[in-house]
Amino acid sequence: MNLRPPRPRRPQFRLADSAQQLVGGFLLAGPFVVTEEVWSLAENMNLLQTLLTVGIVAGIGYATLYKADTARDPDVEHEVVGIPVRFVSLMLVSFGSVTILAVVFGAPETFLEDASTGKLVATTFKAISVGAVFSVVGAATADSVF
């Protein structure tokens, strides 16, 4: 039986934290990047729905990092323009992992083969925001658990 007290969580953001976020973000993003239903949903989303989706990603990320994990305090972390670096990293990982997988897998060209450049870019961003909903769950969970 281990009687040592649990190791206190480091409040400072480290490169290892980003690595953990990357693993979690890629893990849950993959299946949604290659799903035709996600790209069909994205084609039919309007601007308000897209902005709400981005807001949901940010809300899930913030809540997971700072509300579900009470040992972490956003007020003591390093900040960039008033935003905790850990949260900025989480958003970059959440949207970035989906973007990277979409490009590497050729998803926009596969699902939007006849689209104009403007529609391709807009729909790809919408699909990325949908995939980021799932990516942020994996990224924030990996950051909080490890």
Rank of each mutant, 00 (worst) to 15 (best):
P8G: 02
L15I: 12
L15P: 00
A16Y: 15
S18L: 09
Q20C: 08
G25R: 05
G25W: 04
G25T: 04
L27D: 06
A29W: 09
A29D: 11
T35N: 10
W39V: 06
S40M: 13
N44C: 09
M45Q: 05
N46P: 09
L47V: 15
Q49A: 10
Q49T: 14
Q49M: 13
I56H: 11
V57M: 07
V57G: 03
G61V: 09
T64R: 08
Y66H: 02
D69M: 04
A71G: 08
R72M: 01
P74Y: 01
D75S: 07
V76L: 00
E77L: 03
E77T: 06
E79G: 00
V80M: 09
V88K: 05
L90S: 03
L92G: 06
V93A: 03
S94D: 05
I100N: 10
L101R: 07
V103N: 07
G106R: 01
L112V: 10
F125S: 09
A127K: 06
V130S: 04
V130R: 06
V130T: 07
G131V: 09
A132L: 10
F134Q: 05
V137A: 02
A140W: 05
A140F: 08
A142D: 08
D143R: 00
D143Q: 06
D143K: 03
V145N: 03
